[in-house]
Amino acid sequence: MTEWWTYSLHSFLLFSPRVYWRLIEHYNQSLWPLQIPVLLLGFVVLYGLLRRQPRTWRAAWALLACGWFFVGWGYLDQRYAAINWPVKYMVPVFFLEGLLLLVLAARRPTDVRPGAGRRLGLVLLCYALAGHPLVTALLGGAWSAAELPGLLPDPTAIATLGALLGWKKSRWRGVLMVIPVLWCFYSVLCLLAIDAPAAWVMLGALGLAAIAGWGLVWTPIRKRR
């Protein structure tokens, strides 16, 4: 792309805010009342991570993996790609994240030490489960605009970041965070292009994840000194 500096976010605008919010509302309406069990399963994930027993632990990560599969197929491929063509290239990426989470689900429970990282991870996970649906319903002006983890990509990515930051001690944690972080950035750009305030919410979640991530990296270094 030549003269790339002359492009603004609005140069890449493909759809109007009205089309975007209507897409989410119609998607939610087509799934109703699936939102109720999905929300309950979200709390099962939280419970499984807090209990840290092998069976509940594995179930939690497997449920998160299912969320990535469902969002990749049900929302990105079947709905969102129709108005936002780059999204069709992200469908296999979502499936890859689901597969990686399944691999981790098969491994033994590991744990990060309780501390700031754990608390921020918990905050992110709780926000994805309860806060994000409320915020998006308020911004969208209808309950049908509420975005739930496991059904829509933004809260799924935030919930996964929270879970990984708070509970998964593994050299693979960084690898598993790449896709959720990239999605969050992409979503922020799309939301900014349509001047949606939800972009700032996503930026806040990313900022929180960055702080938690920095804490997890910095604390062991400081202790070694």
Partner: peptide
Amino acid sequence: WTTFNVGGDQQL
């Protein structure tokens, strides 16, 4: 551009 990109939304 933008205006007719409405996906499968029947009303739009």
